[in-house]
Design a protein around this nucleic acid. Structure first.
Lengths: 199, 199, 199, 199
DNA sequence: TATGAATGAGGGTTCATTCAT
DNA sequence: CATGAATGAACCCTCATTCAT
């Protein structure tokens, strides 16, 4: 007996609820600190159901980290390395990134856990690393373009990109300001320095 | 009957071994992911002995994080805000910090865990935060001095310091290069940009 | 999906088995002297199951003591303070009580443990005390009635009731005779003396 | 090198302190509920010293229960089965016993623990039982004398003695009144009923 | 004799996973 | 598919006993 359309949607919703609850709790309490029971409760789902949707806890963790990553892909795609006004494009990018990193507190906590724990979650780490690499590539291209256009000082573009993405993560880690705080916006020009804009 | 000198030294060595083993394992596997049993084994000490030296696992974690912190105090003290040549002083500082952060992989992993878990370890977090604040203060003073001397562009010194310390943490988190890698040294000039040196 | 009728009954049986095993072992070896593991074994249940039915060992102890208490409520209710022949009623009561106290060896051992340990089990103690108070009240009423009817010597009825219930506990504690022993029955007239029957 | 007189006295004092502390704590928290460490602390003695004076915890428990028993021997000896005025002798005895049982709260708690736990402490139980038997014998003799003199109703003297000692234990167990309470004294005439005094 | 550090077995409790319903 | 009871390994911690000093 095939499942009805409604049933399928129901199941997809359940799956999503579990993922969201898992991400939240894993971010706050860590992998070992989060019992499956609590995830089920937070998702409003029976305990057993968690295991109908995910093989085991580890799989659930992996999905909770990597699936939201897809939404961030646009962060990469929205960067236009061929923009005319490189400085403006950079500033837009930095501002957007800072805003998003500020608001993604919870998710980035999760990411941090994987980074500091990468031997325990090698597959998950790999996916994060690949995303990071894509982001870095784009930034690099934009930097190269800026240097060619003479609006940025000459520096190793790879290093610039590395320092930039590091800074994003570091800020998220060091600052406990709320995402709404004006603090974040004020940091934009400081971050811009990284790229070596000619004054 | 007081303990002999030798016994006391023996105990201190044991305590240190436990702390080192704990720091290593906590850094690698996290707090919940590290059984006390393993710490004891790694330290070459019986299970029960861990509890002779530390009241419980939480206390051990706290000590493993905060006691090494004392050694880093010199990182703060070595910064001379009244240096004549501010740019040289900054460059020395950045170079030293990067080198130390690179070599402190394990310890900074531990620090990161506290930062992402600060609700679980409030006391430990507080001590880290206070250290961070002392470091930030010193950096700020040096930046102010540089701006007054006209060798740095005018920027909010607090923000500069914030961005700088964030960057240090972020680099440690993002880069998995070995401490010996020349990569770290090459990043120094990039980091210097943060301070807005006049070319 | 609700549990089937059979499952529910199964669970109730399991719960009862655990309670019985717990009562037996707690009575024999005391609270600290009884590992949960042994209770599980005695109940023919897995170790983990004990915690499916009871939050923790303390709760299990509380239940093991107070739940059987309900069955004893009839000891109180069966006393008729308005009986015509007070002496006969008293004798019936004493005989019944002695028989029951003799047969409840194990349970009363448990009770004794709570009484001697009442600071450790305040809630459990309270329930026992309330039961005891109800019993005392009834006995008192009957004594008052007997004195009014002139078949008992005048004595403070409260004290009489106190001495009576104390004696019941004391006998249980001092005598190790089997419940079947005729010893118990032979003590009835001696206990009757407490009430001051006129000869 | 023989021990000096002072040293010997010192050791005896230490031993006594340990015994007192042990009795107090065992009475309050039970055997398993009392760590040796706490006994040492309460006795103002080093942890290791407890084991210099007592082979192990069980031995210490045994001594803590049986050694004070010697002081109670006078309770038995002071009963004069050949007293002229048996009723007066009985009343004196009851009054004294009640007073002592009231004040021995702690020690009798300990006794109760042995009685309810007699399979665990067979040797200790045996000594208590022998003491109890000696007391019972004396009471019996006095009862026989009273019956012969015609001042007590005829009843089985053994049973009377049994009921009497049971009552003493039962009262101690049921009543939580302070030893100073006048309650205890008021119960004397009620207890006297047990012996069947002719009015 | 006095001390207290060292040890590891054993305790209560948690929890991922399984599986019958 | 949905549910939650069943299980037992693994966790942290306690503590009686030993023993070197």
């Amino acid at each position: 007996m095939p499942l009805s359309e409604e049933q399928i949607q129901n199941m997809q919703r359940k799956r999503r609820q579990i993922l969201i609850a898992a991400a939240t709790l894993f971010a706050e309490y860590g992998y070992e600190g989060t019992p499956v029971k609590k995830i089920a409760e937070a998702a409003g789902v029976s305990f057993g159901s968690v295991f109908t949707y995910f093989d085991n806890k580890e799989t659930l963790f992996h999905s909770a980290v990597t699936e939201p990553l897809k939404e961030f892909e646009k962060l990469v795609e929205e960067i236009d390395p061929e923009a005319e006004d490189v400085l403006a494009e950079l500033e837009t990018m930095v501002s957007k990134h800072i805003r998003i990193y500020a608001s993604m507190n919870e998710f980035l906590n999760l990411v941090t856990r994987v980074l500091t724990h990468y031997r325990k979650f090698p597959d998950t780490f790999k996916e994060l690393d690949e995303f990071h690499e894509r982001l870095r590539e784009r930034v690099m291209e934009l930097v190269v373009s800026g240097q060619n256009k003479g609006v940025l000082y000459e520096q190793d573009p790879g290093n610039v990109a590395t320092v930039y993405t590091s800074l994003l993560m570091g800020m998220r880690l060091s600052l406990i300001d709320e995402p709404e705080s004006s603090m974040w916006e004020r940091l934009v020009p400081h971050v811009m320095q990284i790229f070596g804009p000619k004054h």
